[in-house]
Amino acid sequence: MTLEAHVRVARGGFRLDVALRVPPGSVLAVMGPNGSGKSTLLEVIAGLVPLTAGHVRLGGEDLADAATGRHLPPHERGLGVALQDGLLFGHLSARENVAFGPRAQGVAAAAARSAADALLTDVGLAGHARTRADRLSGGQAQRVVVARAVAARPRALLLDEPFGALDAATRPPVRAVVRRAVARGIPAVVVTHDLRDALDLADVLLVLQDGAEVQRGTPAGVVAAPSTPYVEQVVAGLA
């Protein structure tokens, strides 16, 4: 299942114009400073922001197409999404958060719960299954956010800064969870500020500037030969 999109958005003074193609089982990392359009790109693919022009296709199916006016609502796109700031459901437990997607899609409670517990164990939160989400620390909450996005066996994974609040010790198991989900043969787009995430996880790195692509290549290739001083700054974490 390939994710293929040409995303064009014009909102006020902001313009985004990006084309991407993510084959099944591979990860596209997107880097760029705040305001470069990374989050908007994800929100368009997720169906939260309408296209001005272009299209979003997943496995040959049109999720959105500005030409035909097609816009599949977010909940019918079959995606696993972690938006910026996580947005856990504070009144639900960590387990209920992770089980939310499967439950919403009709998976039986017991099955959803045991799958959620397994994922929570994977991200190192086995002891927090019953903790209310609004009582979790920032790092714990972020791990639940990733587990929640992965839990619904999505057809594609969209993650916005999924590791930002994690320290060096907790990152690897969470990255591993993402890697396993992708290995089931789905495409993933990961927005990040941290080059290490791109190097560790991504097949392709896309660097954005003011809503447009400035460089694309393997993460190691981009680091080795940044095309502009701006790209050099972005991958160094300075922009």
Binding site: A46, G47, L48, P73, P74, H75, R77, G78, L79, G80, V81, L83, L87, F89, F100, G101, A104, Q105, R148, A149, A152, L158
Partner: peptide, 10 residues
């Protein structure tokens, strides 16, 4: 919106 992106109807 986050809930919707996880497959939950309005």
């Amino acid at each position: 919106l986050a809930a919707q992106t996880l497959g939950a109807s309005p």
